[in-house]
C-alpha cells in the first residue's frame, strides 16, 4: 500500500464539492432567469387592478384618482408585508 496523503485527498474533495455546489447553483440561477422571462412572456402579470372610482372623464378628477390609487397601493403593500 502506498502512503495516502489524506490532506491532498481532502483538498480534492474540496475542489469537487465546491465545484458541484457552484455548478448546481449557477445552473439554478440561469434556470430561474429563464423561467422568469418565459413566465413574463406567456403569462404577463394582469394589469394592476385599477381602483374603483367614478368613471374616468373630467380632467380635474385625474389628480384625485392618482391619489386614491397611491393610497390603495400603499395599503395593499403594507398588508402584504404584514
Amino acid at each position: 500500500m502506498t502512503e495516502v496523503n489524506y490532506i491532498a485527498e481532502a483538498l480534492k474533495f474540496m475542489v469537487l464539492g465546491m465545484g458541484v455546489v457552484f455548478l448546481f447553483l449557477v445552473v439554478l440561477v440561469q434556470l430561474i432567469k429563464l423561467q422568469a422571462s418565459l413566465i413574463q412572456k406567456y403569462f404577463p402579470d394582469k394589469a394592476p387592478i385599477t381602483p374603483i372610482a367614478p368613471k374616468i372623464g373630467s380632467e380635474d378628477r385625474d389628480e384625485e384618482q392618482r391619489r386614491v390609487a397611491a393610497i390603495i397601493a400603499a395599503i395593499s403593500e403594507y398588508s402584504k408585508n404584514k
Binding site: I7, L11, F13, M14, G17, V21, F22, L25
Partner: peptide, 17 residues
C-alpha cells in the same frame, strides 16, 4: 444571490481539510 449560499459551503469543505 444564490451564489452566496454556495460560497458559504466553503465552511464545509474547508473544515474537511
Amino acid at each position: 444571490t444564490a451564489l452566496l449560499g454556495g460560497a458559504a459551503q466553503f465552511g464545509i469543505f474547508g473544515s474537511l481539510v
